[in-house]
């Protein structure tokens, strides 16, 4: 039962997102398994991207760890980000951040660029994506530099 309702919620979310997205989010086009074009039309800033990944409010580091020796309290609910740039293209990383559920519908990784179709979102967050288009681009640029 619970499982079914979860699936339905996911599905409803996926359907609703198309309506809501058009209003507030920069439109983007998915080609293959990625988003080829920068959401802002410009490349991101790797230094800002690194700072964002390490900022707790961005939430990455709650689940992930990575080559960040200065940061204590990293998570282990998700793969280490070391070598991300070897494994994934910028296009794939962009789609993963925008909506990780495209890669794995059951993933616990939040969709960072989505503004609707979610349940009981806190008052201060309603209708807003977790990250802005520019922040996504900064993080994509940084992740692409993480090479072994």
């Amino acid at each position: 039962m619970a499982r079914t309702s979860l699936h339905i919620a996911t599905l409803v979310a996926a359907t609703l997102a198309s309506g809501a997205e058009a209003q507030d989010l920069v439109p983007y086009r998915i080609t293959g398994d990625g988003i080829g074009q920068s959401l802002t039309g410009a490349p991101g800033d790797t230094a800002r991207g690194r700072a964002l990944v390490l900022a707790r409010t961005t939430t990455c580091i709650l689940c992930h760890s990575g080559p960040f020796p200065e940061t204590r309290f990293q998570g282990d609910l998700a793969p280490d980000l070391r070598g991300t740039g070897n494994r994934w293209s910028a296009s794939q990383l962009r789609l993963r951040l925008v909506d990780a559920a495209r890669f794995n519908p059951q993933t616990i990784m939040p969709s960072y660029y989505r503004n609707g179709g979610l349940v009981r979102v806190g008052r201060n967050f309603v209708g807003k994506p977790i990250l802005s288009a520019a922040e996504i681009e900064d993080i994509v640029a940084f992740l692409a530099t993480l090479r072994d």
């Binding site: 039962m1 619970a2 499982r3 309702s5 979860l6 919620a9 996911t10 979310a13 939430t59 609910l77 616990i108 939040p110 969709s111 979610l118 349940v119 009981r120 979102v121 806190g122 967050f125 807003k128 977790i130």
Partner: peptide, 21 residues
């Protein structure tokens, strides 16, 4: 059902952390 329900801007259910992780 509430325990299994994903919710909030981070879209996580109680079960995601406390049953599975």
């Amino acid at each position: 059902d509430l325990f299994m329900q994903r919710e909030g801007q981070l879209n996580l259910a109680c079960a995601n952390c406390h049953d599975h992780n």
